[in-house]
Design a protein around this nucleic acid. Structure first.
Lengths: 208, 208
DNA sequence: AGGTGTGAATTATTTCACAGCG
DNA sequence: CGCTGTGAAATAATTCACACCT
């Protein structure tokens, strides 16, 4: 597959969720127009986007949901299962460690870490909180590529450095802090306040 | 202010966070080049973006952090304080209700709701969990414009309808489900799995 | 010198519109 | 027919490059 534009990738993730839902309802095919409706996009945009996966549609009847979903997974790199570490077991870290949605989307939480000795050793569900100091050793065994960083802002950079040393290639940063990583380690920032701001703005503008 | 493009708005939220941080460190001005550095954007993009707020920069020395931050807040509609409701007190809802970051950014959680009678009445910090059935009545008093929806996917739509009836104008939807709202009620979806997918993709492509 | 404001050029993304396949 | 695939056109966003202020 050649280079896919960034906005298309964002939409890919949305399409995948929608198609999975449709699939659960027993649907087999969907037209660009119908998908556009529920995805809040234009039919031609859908066609352009899906075309990047190859010509999967059937003229006259639409797109086969199953194959498109499979190709989307392949394009997004979740055709297998990706092991993930969660670092930080505050309220947010714990909430995420219990979240079942990851598994359905190709991610599996295989380790939860903290630096607080009082927490290390206690169990939440199937996961036992491990000591952050053993993360490099553990990572050699679990081979996670991605880590979810859910620590307080002041320690974000230090912990991020530890993750990089442990061989992590991508960090989903939930801390409200900017972190620096060496070339080759990708950071994706998630900041719910940003989304709140954006929502507020859209309300004022009455944008949909 | 005339129409600001959507991508610019997204960046506005980021700039604001950075400028607040710089301000905390005692900085007074910053050049487009310096800001570009930490915001991972190009200097000319910064200048274009900030220009949409009016010509605030001083040639030769850069942008006055304070005024720019104030204008950003105005542009994003957070020059005052926005009251917010949180609906759903699972792990995630509770984590958010305790999150202190909102206040600093112009949002204040003024109510937390659930439908579980065993939870209603119990207190978390300064907030007492209230009954979802009284939300319309309460909203008439608290006048929240925004609600954060943190309920399980199957009940998302029903609860969203309740929120709309209570006069909510914008919903930050954390449930992994699509919700429909009447014209004039804005929905902003937050889905951490989508960000994980995006991160995974960027690792594969080695995009920064 | 140093750094903004801004038209013009470039590049990216979306939409149009229609040929062509099932 | 209905609906995809796709060049071509239109629109949006970014970057260039430089005049101009302090």
């Amino acid at each position: 597959m050649k280079l896919v534009p960034e906005p298309t990738i964002r939409r890919f993730a949305r399409y995948l969720r929608l198609l999975d839902q449709l699939s659960d309802r027993g649907e087999n095919t969907i037209s660009s127009t119908a998908l556009a409706q529920i995805a809040k996009a234009s039919p031609s945009q859908i066609r352009r986007d899906l075309l990047a996966l190859g010509a999967l549609g059937t003229r006259g009847s639409g797109y086969p949901i199953h194959s498109v979903a499979r190709e989307l997974r392949k394009a997004l790199g979740v055709d297998g299962v990706r092991p993930v570490y969660i670092v930080g077991t505050g309220r947010l870290g714990l909430a995420l460690s219990q979240y079942t949605g990851f598994q359905q989307r190709g991610f599996r939480v295989v380790g939860v870490f903290d630096n607080d000795p009082r927490k290390v050793g206690t169990s939440y569900g199937r996961l036992r909180i491990r000591d952050i100091r053993s993360i490099a050793k553990d990572a050699a065994k679990d081979r996670p590529i991605i880590a979810i960083l859910a620590v307080p802002a002041p320690s974000a950079q230090t912990v991020a450095d530890t993750l990089v040393d442990a061989g992590i290639r991508g960090i989903l940063n939930l801390a409200p802090a900017l972190i620096k990583t060496p070339e080759g380690v990708v950071v994706q920032n998630v900041d719910i306040t940003t989304d709140l701001l954006l929502l507020g703005f859209r309300i004022d503008q009455n944008r949909r």
